[in-house]
Design a protein around this nucleic acid. Structure first.
Lengths: 210, 210, 210, 210
DNA sequence: GATGAATGAGCGTTCATTCAT
DNA sequence: AATGAATGAACGCTCATTCAT
């Protein structure tokens, strides 16, 4: 029975390294952006030879796709759970906002930002991992529709425009410097921005403001 | 006394060419994005030698900085005129929105988008041309403050957060596909997004919605 | 006394695997040529690890040398049997031609072709396995000499030139497309080419042509 | 009028260097074969930077195609002149043989040999420069047909097989070592091989042999 | 000043070979 | 003995920058 153990050990090590690689990718992406992230630098930082990197991911693009796919899966797994039917549409959307943007460092949001804005890469990635992205986007869309039907949100604004605004206004990249300077916490900033967005689409104000 | 004349003639030609170069940069940037814009292509399209390009701008980055600097100066010159004191803060901000994003083609907005998103380039650029950007930003900031004092806008939201949201939500890039698909006009989209933003910060709804 | 048995068992397995490897090499060589035959592919097709391949052959080149060496040994063993003394020199040479080039598929000829033409590889190979090649070549040489003495072949042509021409004109690779297109059978082509060669060196025409 | 002069000077230098590059390509190809000829080595031997090589030829393949195209054009220009109608077919073919294979060094033949045998490269090249190659081949074909009609050559042998044999038997690569060892001159070897070929296809013997 | 030929560091990718297990 | 993960030198190619003319 030593074989399976051995194999799963190897497999475990492999996955651990893959994790390590993806971790480094995250760092470098955040520092340098997509185009300036070189396979050499990733390999060096991981502490492996460049060839080894290619044992895990056959192309740079594959590596990046894997990275973002994983990132989006994390979000999806958080938001894919059914929410109570009596929950307001806004509350449901707030759950999604937190899944997407509320990690302590604010990295998640920055990465999504890079994903959505990385020039040429964007197109390819969207083709390859459209599914996961679409599923997230569809979820948001359905809650926005629901909110309009329930008269939570302004029915005069096209849902598709609400959807686009959801992703652009809530992206924390824009607000990055604020919580990096320490003036506001990441959480504070997100709360204010949510308030702007939801009031903007006709939603209610948080209780504390009444 | 022929020297000064000669020199200013030369100088005029020089500036004309610089204009031409920056014009071409706009085209190529919009077509290909920052990273895929090569010095070769710019020189070719302008009809000058690559070396000549480097007489005007010592580095690719300098060229890009100059381009965006000029772009922001255009905006600044439009919004720098004093507005009637009895104009509402929101109306004043709408003037700025239109200066920034409302050219018929939507090019301006796309360029600002490229500017704000061009990976590593962004950081450098902000260092070099912070002044102009700051002056635009200060203008927006002062109108936001004014609006809060006049009770047009929600005083509970920090102005700095309103400011950041102003730039992120109103960026038309996010909505690009919408008016490129023809579903909505550029103007329609901007109107809806403005509505979301201004209502979001506590502003009034446009008259038509009352 | 169990050791020798064990060892010879191991040895037998080893040789069987070596056979298997060389078989696979044949396939891949024919499909891809020398340079595009990778150690990875060979190991995969054999079903062993790449490291194991290197236990048998220390370098890619060694593997190739071994393969061609064996190929030539096969030819040698066929042509090494003594032929009837009253057989004409031409008939004897035709036996060799058939040993070298006449397998149903035409594979043998293609392999010799690859051997003789594999760019840099050729030189090294000739050094390492000159012996077997020389023995084949000597056989041909002796029959050519014999034919000249018996007045079968033109005594004015240096035997060494006859020898070189023997290998070049009879290589079926040159004629490959012909029998691959189906216009002529492999056998037809070989017969015509033999006719050209033997008449060329002064030999008789086949009976059917008289 | 200095401009045209200047330009043609530049152009001249450009062509001179292109010549130099193609010369180096010839050397390296003969030494290492197609696959082992690297752009780095070519550039180094020419004494220019790698990038400069790419100013002349956009891809390795283009460089190789250019090289072989030029080589074949040389042959074509020699054999494309009309020959006297009363010349025998064999004499006409001998003109072609000399054009193809009779340079003092025997390099030409070796290069054609590399061209015809360079594994993957062959296919691409044949596509790109099929025309020139076809024109040479057609010329040979037409003379062979002519010879058969005039009863110079054996009408029982298919012309296409004569054609293939023409290129394979007369390739001097096979005979390289002979004249490299000094035993026979390049010219001697070619004369003997021609004799074998032409007698082989039913042609007459040279006068000296009667 | 204007040119554009020349440069060379850097990129993503491959693969024969090694070596810890 | 057998494995296959790991290596790293080498490849073809690009492009911002320089510099002789």
């Amino acid at each position: 029975m030593s074989r399976p153990v051995h194999r799963s050990l190897k497999e475990k090590q492999r996955q651990e390294r893959e994790e390590l690689i993806l971790h480094v990718v995250e760092d470098v992406l955040l520092e340098k952006g997509y185009r300036d992230t070189s396979m050499d630098e990733i390999a060096n930082r991981v502490g492996i030879a460049k060839g080894t990197l290619y044992l895990h991911f056959a192309k740079k693009e594959d590596l990046m796709v894997a990275f973002f796919e994983r990132e989006m899966q994390k979000i999806l797994s958080t938001i894919d759970q059914p929410l109570p039917a009596d929950m307001s549409a806004q509350a449901k959307l707030e759950v999604i906002v937190h899944a997407m943007y509320s990690d302590p460092s604010g990295k998640r949001g920055d990465l999504l930002y890079i994903l959505f804005n990385s020039e040429d890469f964007k197109i390819t990635l969207k083709e390859k991992s459209a599914t996961t992205l679409t599923r997230i986007s569809d979820k948001v869309l359905s809650y926005l529709e629901e909110g309009k039907q329930r008269n939570e949100f302004d029915p005069h604004i096209p849902t598709i425009i609400m959807l686009n605004s959801f992703f652009s206004v809530l992206s924390p990249r824009a607000h990055r410097r604020l919580f990096q300077s320490g003036e506001y916490s990441h959480m504070d900033v997100m709360r204010y921005v949510e308030r702007i967005y939801f009031r903007g689409i006709g939603g209610r104000l948080p209780v504390e403001d009444l």
